[in-house]
Nucleic acid binder design. Sequence first.
RNA 1: GUAGAUAUAGCUCAGCUGGUUAGAGCGUCGGAUUGUGAUUCCGAAGGUCGUGGGUUCGAGCCCCAUUAUUUACCCCA
Length: 477
Amino acid sequence: MQKPSIPKGTRDFGPAQVARRQHIFNVIRRTFESFGFAPLETPTLENLSVLTGKYGDEGDQLLFKVLNSGDFAKDVTADDLATGSKALLPKVAEKGLRYDLTVPFARYVAMNRGTLTFPFKRYQMQPVWRADRPQRGRYREFYQCDADVVGTDSLLCEAEIVLMMAQVLGGLGLHDFTIKINHRGVLRNIYQALGGEGRETDLFVAIDKLDKIGRDGVTKELLERGFSEPTIETLFALLTVEGTYEEKLQRLLAGFVTAGVEPDGVRPTTPDVDADSPEPLANYRGLTELAEVRDLLTASGFRQFDRLDFDPTLARGLSYYTGCIFEVKINNVQMGSVSGGGRYDNLTGSFGLPGVSGVGFSFGVDRLYDCLEALDLFTVTGETPTRCLLTHFDVASGRAALPLLAQLRAAGIPSELYPDASKLQKQFKYADAKGIPLVIIMGPEEVATGVVKVKIMQTGVERVLPLGEVVAALTAE
RNA sequence: GUAGAUAUAGCUCAGCUGGUUAGAGCGUCGGAUUGUGAUUCCGAAGGUCGUGGGUUCGAGCCCCAUUAUUUACCCCA
C-alpha cells in the first residue's frame, strides 16, 4: 500500500475551510461588482507562447509546462537532447498552466478587441500555478482575484482601486492594514535626480528592500552595484522624506527641483486638482498623478488616509508597470503582501494591440485566509450547511420521516435524515460533531402519536410539537 | 538555485549519556445510559519509530546516504 499524498505546495480544503474561503470570495466579488466589474474566466491552460517572456527569466522558470498529448517525444532528435532542455522544451510542450490572471486577460482583450466595449472592466477569480519553492504564504497552486480596467487613462481607476482594497479588507474584518502607493514616474525622477548613474532597475530592486534589509543593507548592495557614496546619500535624502502624503509630495518636489530633474510633462488632470499646490508639481507626472489620486479619493468620501501610505521606496518587481503601483500589507501578521497592482501602459502590446492602457490589482485569497486565521478573525464556522437532523430508530419510522424531511427542505431549511437506524446516541453525536443546531426525534412513539420532539442542541431545550406544526414553527425562528 | 530544521499511533507531540515489552493528550470504537449530544467515569483497538545502509553485545536515539515535509534567502500573491 502506498501512502497517499498530494503534490508539494498544493492543499485540500475541507468543508469548514471551503466555507471560510467562500466567504472571502463573496466579499471580494460583491465589492468588484459594486464597482461595475464583470466576471471573466479563462482556461487553466494557455499556449506557452502566450506565457513565456512575460514574467522575465525567473518567471519563465516558474511556469508549469504541460507535456504534449500522445507521443510527446516523436519530434525529439538526438541533437535536441544533446543541446539541453531549452531546445527540447518547445518540441515536447506547447501548453502551460496560467501563471497569473493579468497576461491571460491581456491575451483575451487582444483576441476580442473587435467585440469589447471600452473601457472594459473585468474581474477574475481563478487559481494560478507557479513552480516556486513553497513556504509561508507561498503555494504552488493559489487563487488570485483580479480586477482590471483597460482602455482609459483616467486616474479614477487608481482611486477606485484604493477604495476597493479598503472595502474588501474592511468587509473581512481586517482593519489594521496599510495600502502603500507609489508611482513609477516618481522612481524615474529619483533616478534622474541621482544623475542617471548605474542601472535603473538595479536601483529599484535595491530600494524596494529598504524595509527588509535596512539602510545599511541597501547601501551595501548599491555600492556593490557601482553607485557612489554621494549618490547614495542623495538617494536616502529623497527616499526618507517624512510627513503626510501631501508633505511627502511637496518635499520630493523640492528635491527634484533642487537636483534639476527635467520635468517629464503631465497628462490631462481634472481642473482643480492642484488648486492648493504650487504650479511646479504639475510638471512631474508621478507627483501630479499621486496628488490627483488623493484628491479623487477625498472627493469619493475616502476617510482612511492614515492607512494610505505614499511610500517612495515601493518598487514592485513586475517590470510592466508604468504608472501608479500599489501594495497592501496586513499589520501585525508575518505575511507578504495580500494585494498589489498598478498601471501598465502597454499591456496588450505583445499581443499585437499597442497603446492600450490598463490598470488593475489582485487579491491573494490564500494569504488573506492565512491572515484571518492568524488574527483569529473568522466568524464563519459551519462544518455543514445542515440546519436540522431527523433521527429515527427503525425502517418504519425512517419511512415516516420522509414527508417531513421534504417539507423542511421545501421551506428552505437544509435538512437531512440520519441514513442508518443507529442508536439514538450515535445520531446525536453526529449532530453535535457537525454543529447541526436542531434535532427532531422521529421514533415509533412519535409516529404513533403524531407529535415529535424538537431539540435545540445549543441550549438542550426540547420542545414537543404536532407534526403539522413543525415546519411553521421552525420557519418562524 | 543557496542555507537550516524536522520525520515516532488517525492528529499534535514526549521519549534522559544508546539498554529489556516505545508513551501521553486528542480523536476513533465499546460500555456505564436496551430513546438523547457536548460534560463525567471505565475499557479497547491502533506504531516494521520516513526509507536504505553502517557502527555496536545492543539503535527510536550515533554515523552516512536517500526521500518527503518545512523555514529563511532569491522572487513573489
